[in-house]
Design a protein around this nucleic acid. Structure first.
Lengths: 107, 107
DNA sequence: TGAACATATGAGCATTTGTTCATGTGTTTA
DNA sequence: TAAACACATGAACAAATGCTCATATGTTCA
């Protein structure tokens, strides 16, 4: 172990580069207030695109663009119901991650 | 309650706008692979700036800039030790948040 | 005190990101 | 089938972001 610098040690224990990249990408999705607000809205109940847009006082287009990102990250799911598309939270990871963040900012 | 749209209901239950902004700002900090890598490095042990830079194969300046952001968000702490400044994880929220994200991307 | 070392920081630049605007796709209903 | 409605999407543009380079600040030691 002699001659092994701390930097080298730590470097060797780092997870795979691609994993870290994906992880950063995930947090990046949470890192926008519009998307956070959408997630909080879906916290309450599943909703159509136009309902979300009305809740947040934003255009349908802006919301739709953001929903696409949330869907790609598997944070929300969607199903068609007639002319509308109903979005909902994908799983409880979303709640847990947001709650942890919430604890940090509110303490 | 009649005439109360779903959008209006949800809107009223939304947390304070500024809180949501701060929350997004927090996640934004996690949303960069350099900062994620720094945090993982500090997961192993506290380290000086140059050790971190060597671990991640990046310039001292780039690391220092990112450490400033991490420090402002209270995700890391710092103390001087001679010529060096030693950075370390601020608290266990960091670990918890990252672990939750990790679960999401590795499932 | 001055040189060497460790870190911080401001300016500049290329890249990324979020919104708007216009329009396309898909579904219902008259 | 045509019009109306709900949503998706591409292009364009302004704003934010991360790195580099040069340099400033702070600490140790000869």
């Amino acid at each position: 172990m002699a001659g092994q610098s701390k930097a080298q040690e730590v470097k060797e224990q780092m997870p795979d580069e691609n994993m870290l990249y994906d992880l950063a990408e995930l947090f990046k999705v949470f890192g926008d207030s519009t998307r956070i607000r959408i997630l909080f809205a879906l916290f309450e109940s599943e909703m159509s695109v136009s309902d979300i847009a009305e809740s947040l006082q934003m255009t349908q287009s802006a919301i739709s663009h953001q929903l696409r990102i949330l869907k790609q990250s598997k944070l929300v799911g969607a199903r068609r119901e007639g002319k509308q598309i109903i979005y909902s939270l994908a799983d409880d990871h979303v709640r847990t991650i947001i709650n942890q963040g919430w604890d940090h900012v509110t303490e």
